[in-house]
Each structure stands twice: as C-alpha cells, then as structure tokens.
Design a binder for these strands. Structure first.
Length: 108
DNA sequence: AACTTGACGGTCA
DNA sequence: ATGACCGCCAAGT
C-alpha cells in the first residue's frame, strides 16, 4: 500500500460520517501544503478504480454544489445517494449545507 | 519538453 | 450577484 496524497484523501473521506458532507477545499486545508483542492478532486476521480468503499458523494464544493455529479453513474446518482442520507437538495445544491457540513480540521 | 485540462477556491472589478 | 482571472499541480496528449 502507498501512503501518498491520494491515500490521505481517501482516509479522510472514509471518515465523513453518514449524513454529513465536506468540501474539497476543507480536505485540502486539512492536509496542509500537501495539496490543493484540485488535487482532492483528482484523487476522488481515481476512486472509480478503487474498491468502492469510499463515500465520494459526501464531498461537494464550498457552496454545497454537487459539482462532481457527472462523475457518478446515472443521471442523478450522487443526488440520490445524498438524499437517501437525509440531505435536502435543490438544483444540485445542498440546502442545509451549513448544518451538515463536517470539517476534518475541527472534528477529527 | 510544452501545452492543456480539471470532482477547486479566493480575489477583484 | 456575476464573471474573469489566477494559483494550484498531477496526468494526459
């Protein structure tokens, strides 16, 4: 197993509690200078090859917008996954984002 | 080796 | 509120 930037990202994403969400930037910030928000999105992109135990749908952009939805199967798979966890989504935006936001640097 | 492309975010007009 | 720009940096071409 490697311990590169990607692995660190996976570790954090796996820790996002059910029904909560975080942002690419928050993860990048938590990892310090080891990466930018773009890198986090990149890391998640490669989870498609991975085993699939990574809840990538719980990562959205800083505005609670489902910017990564097109990388999931189906038309609205990402949205459906989040809704099934109790989040309210309207026009690809998480309405109760602030309440559901989980910040790794304060909650870990 | 050079250029483009992003699941991003902050700043400024 | 909206849009342009810039920094970010690994991968693909």
């Amino acid at each position: 197993m490697e311990h590169g930037f990607f692995q660190k990202v996976y570790e954090i994403v796996r820790r996002i509690p059910y029904g909560r969400v975080t942002s690419y930037g928050a993860i990048a910030e938590f990892l310090g200078s080891r990466g930018s928000a773009r890198m986090v999105g990149w890391a998640l992109n490669s989870t498609k090859d991975s085993t699939g135990d990574i809840p990538a749908h719980r990562v959205v952009n800083r505005n609670g917008l489902l910017t990564g939805k097109r990388h999931f199967g189906g038309k609205d798979l990402m949205k459906e996954l989040l809704e099934s966890e109790g989040l309210i989504i309207e026009d690809d935006r998480i309405i109760n984002f602030k309440e559901k936001f989980w910040d790794p640097k304060v909650e870990i």
